[in-house]
């Protein structure tokens, strides 16, 4: 795989994928990393439009991909539409270093194929239930980085964060997990540092 490094962001609907994207974009910009975005919206261009209107990135650097009602297929079995979008972005922006690919909201079994991404993040949230790590979905098991978001909501919905930490440690031995509240920014620096450090190990970012 040549060209820009490709970083996938997957996870269930409402877990905070777009929020993570919006939080990371200024950090990539501050770090001087040339970045573009692809969103795999389930039904509309809502996420792409949200990112375009955010003022965080040149709207021309944001592309939306339709997934034929199969968001998991578009990042796993047949990433053709995403690969085509990457191709367009790389032709449009010669110095492109990173493409962030947000998957359509999917279930816990969604995974990114290595034919599409170099590195990927899976986002879950505490409000969806503190038993998610125990269910050991493939996304949670295989992602390079797990983000457990909305920790601020845990006490409000009766989610046990200590239990989630223990279950995550069992489910992902040796793999990083970061607990975040992306609205306030808790855990965000750690997530960014981790992503950039891992991208550095891939030898792409310098």
């Amino acid at each position: 795989m040549t060209g820009a490094i490709r970083i996938g962001i997957g996870g269930p609907v409402g877990s905070g994928k777009t929020r993570l994207l919006e939080r990371l974009l200024p950090m990539f910009a501050t770090a001087g990393i040339d970045t573009a975005v692809i969103t795999n919206d389930l039904m509309t261009e809502e996420d792409a439009e949200r990112v375009r209107r955010s003022g965080l990135i040149d709207p021309a650097r944001v592309m939306a991909v339709e997934t034929g009602a199969c968001p998991h297929t578009a990042i796993r079995e047949d990433p053709s539409a995403n690969l085509a979008a990457i191709d367009v972005l790389e032709r449009r922006f010669a110095g492109l270093e990173v493409v962030l690919i947000e998957s359509g909201g999917d279930n816990l079994a969604a995974t990114f194929t290595s034919d599409l991404v170099d590195y990927w993040v899976f986002v879950i949230d505490t409000a969806a239930g503190d038993d998610i790590p125990r269910k050991k979905g493939l996304g949670l098991l295989q992602a390079d980085l797990l983000v457990v978001n909305k920790i601020d909501l845990a006490p409000l919905v009766g989610a046990d964060l200590d239990l989630m930490r223990r279950d995550v440690a069992v489910a992902r031995p040796g793999k990083p997990t970061i607990f975040t509240d992306l609205r306030s920014g808790v855990g965000l620096d750690e997530a960014f540092d981790r992503i950039v450090r891992d991208a550095l190990t891939l030898g792409v970012l310098t």
Binding site: V65, E66, T67, G68, C70, T73, A74, E77, D78, P79, S80, A81, A84, D115
Partner: peptide, 11 residues
């Protein structure tokens, strides 16, 4: 249909 040529996103 598993051959990855992107047909599945077109109706």
């Amino acid at each position: 249909s598993a051959f990855p040529s992107g047909r599945f996103v077109h109706s």
